[in-house]
Write a protein that binds this DNA or RNA. Structure first.
Lengths: 233, 233
DNA sequence: GTCTATAACGAGATAGAC
DNA sequence: GTCTATCTCGTTATAGAC
């Protein structure tokens, strides 16, 4: 009996994966706005109504793709951080940035899905919030390690930003100085700004040696969150 | 005869503007991917074939909207720079950044059109390149002014980036140090990263006091391109 | 219980004849 | 420029196979 249920579950997982794979293909070809359940079903040799056994609506399928994308880039960041345990924090920071960029270059449409323009008519549900934070969590962990190690170097916050920085620190990293947490949020957005500009074509005929350019910019971002050059130990 | 031609031309300009206005409405409602000449025509009480007298294809209409958007945000940046002639460079920099963000918040769909995900199947023609650079030109002019005034403070470039930075400087600002030009390109992307994160919802439940947060981040970006605090004169 | 297929809805896009 | 016939879409109700 359990093997029967096991087989069913396996089939279900397989079909679910096939649907998402086909949907990702359509994402690349037509964009998220034109993702169509019927076209996915047609391509899979199914009938559109059958898809509703796996995804209760088009938006839920979109949500699944979004969560998968956040998880994939988050995992890439986590792997990069784990692969460089002995390196100084600035180097680990840069490695994580590189991993994020490499993932984006390898999966441009899924990157656009999560960090590009919002899909018209789609409202991201709560389920996307936690996966969306994975990259930021990795970056924070590197900064935290540096903080407990040898401290961080940041100019004092202006008075106007102090309450907001304190709130952010309380919410996301109570063990870190508010100035660092605020700088982290900005650096996170700026990192994706670099990746988006490259991926969305703004660097066309502007930046040519993009690997080198990005590495340097990522290193300066590490600086901007207070990480110091040189070995940590 | 010239008045007749004048009237014709005036009518043509008016209709062209009406088409673009309606297209912008659709941009907001359905996204650039679903922009349809037919729907625009229907909404204007015209027949779709009539639109082709004004825009030879959907892509040309899209290009017009993109150029308009780049011009609008570029003009906002230029105005902000011109409105603060006496301020120190860091303050002028921040004012320009604020103007860009304010324009983006006021025109989110046009911002998404130019700085968001590429429109599937659309290839940006050469005509978009110059308007796309207007904001960057304004930022560079502020940095240039500071450079001729009292100098800039930037760490030396790593060897690996030196050739690329030299090339960028030769192409865009031969009078400025390569390190500054490279930092400028990065800061430009990072500025839009901050705006995109806010506009595309990534700061949802992360950053609350966004005006203050952005002002501070923009100020730190000024720092990153070498601008120094304090009065310039 | 779990799945797929048929058919239909209301809405909208599209192609072509006229 | 108009009209129509034929597509697309998301979604649901229903019936039947395993």
């Amino acid at each position: 009996m359990s093997t029967v249920r096991g087989a069913r579950e396996r089939a279900r997982i397989e079909v679910t994966a096939a649907i998402k794979d086909e949907a990702r293909k359509q994402l690349a070809a037509e964009g998220a706005a034109k993702l169509s359940l019927r076209a996915v079903a047609r391509e899979l040799g199914m009938v559109s109504s059958a898809l509703y056994r796996y995804f209760p609506s088009r938006d839920e399928l979109l949500t699944a793709l979004i969560v998968d994308a956040y998880d994939a880039v988050g995992e890439a960041a986590e792997r990069a951080a784990a692969a460089a345990p002995g390196l100084p924090p600035t180097a680990r920071w840069t490695e994580v940035c590189r991993a994020v960029r490499a993932w984006a270059l390898a999966n441009p449409h899924e990157y656009a899905l999560i960090y590009g323009s919002p899909v018209p008519g789609y409202q991201a549900p709560q389920a996307t919030v936690e996966p969306a934070a994975r990259v930021a969590v990795v970056l924070i962990s590197i900064v935290r390690e540096a903080h407990t190690g040898r401290g961080l170097a940041l100019p004092p916050l202006p008075d106007a930003l102090r309450p907001e920085a304190a709130r952010m620190a309380a919410d996301f990293a109570p063990d870190l100085p508010p100035a660092v947490v605020a700088a982290m949020a900005a650096a996170w957005a700026q990192l994706m700004g670099l990746v988006s500009f490259e991926l969305f074509g703004q660097f066309h005929r502007v930046v040519e040696d993009r690997d080198t350019f990005f590495d340097h910019a990522a290193g300066r971002l590490a600086h901007a969150v207070g990480l110091l050059d040189g070995p940590a130990h």
